[in-house]
């Protein structure tokens, strides 16, 4: 596979997130990495965006790309952000690495009117099979680490996430299943997302009373 192809597939999930964000929104990208998603959002959706990342090199790269970025720890919280100050707060493939996912999601929905959360699905059949057959912690394309060196400290399934939303008064406005970072939308995937999706993307908002 050519490097271009590989990169295209790695970031096919970005396209799905870009698709979900309306034109001209104000976006906060938590764990923004090298800023590629924000850059795409600015270029194709004309968003006003800001990124947050803990890593110095990522922050330098974001500034090189002309982005506004804050070097900080998500677990420190979003306390200094005003309520409803963003249209969308994005947490892309980062939920499973924070210390307090529940706190981070609640803060996202305080600061943003809506939030977009994506995470690798630990309920995928390959993960389940791997654990059953080998008895070892699964190492997959989405979760390519050993138990002792993984940054993914809060693994979850799509079903876990839906249950969390239900119990915490959070509405799921949209849901996208990904395999190989590409969107899948067949009947099977609609019926069994927790078994068939490698990754889930959710658009969520506080439940309207």
């Amino acid at each position: 596979m050519s490097p271009e192809n590989k990169r295209a597939i790695q970031h096919a999930d970005y396209e799905q997130i870009v698709r979900l964000v309306p034109e001209g929104s104000k976006v906060l990208d938590l764990g923004c990495g090298d800023g590629r998603l924000l850059r795409m959002l600015m270029e194709s959706k004309n968003v006003r965006g800001r990124g947050v990342d803990i890593d110095e090199e990522n922050v330098v790269e974001c500034i090189r790309k002309g982005l506004s970025v804050f070097q900080g720890d998500l677990d420190e919280g979003l306390a200094d952000y005003q309520e409803g100050s963003y249209d969308y707060v994005i947490l892309n493939r980062t939920l499973q690495v924070v210390y307090r996912p529940d706190y981070v999601i609640k803060e996202m929905l305080r600061v943003g009117r809506k939030a977009i959360v994506s995470f690798p699905n630990f309920g995928h059949w390959r993960v389940r099979l791997d654990l059953m057959l080998t008895g070892l912690m699964p190492v997959t394309r989405m979760l390519p680490f050993e138990w002792y060196n993984t940054p993914n400290i809060h693994l979850l399934t799509i079903k876990d996430f839906k249950r969390f939303c239900m119990l915490n008064g959070i509405d799921i406005l949209d849901e996208v299943s990904l395999v190989h970072s590409r969107r899948v939308s067949g009947r099977r995937h609609k019926l069994f997302p927790n078994l068939l999706a490698e990754e889930g993307i959710f658009v969520i908002a506080p439940r309207k009373i």
């Binding site: 110095e56 804050f70 070097q71 952000y81």
Partner: peptide, 12 residues
């Protein structure tokens, strides 16, 4: 940021 100004921050 509370004033919605364009600001970046880096700790070296």
């Amino acid at each position: 940021m509370a004033n919605d100004r364009d600001v970046s921050y880096c700790e070296i």
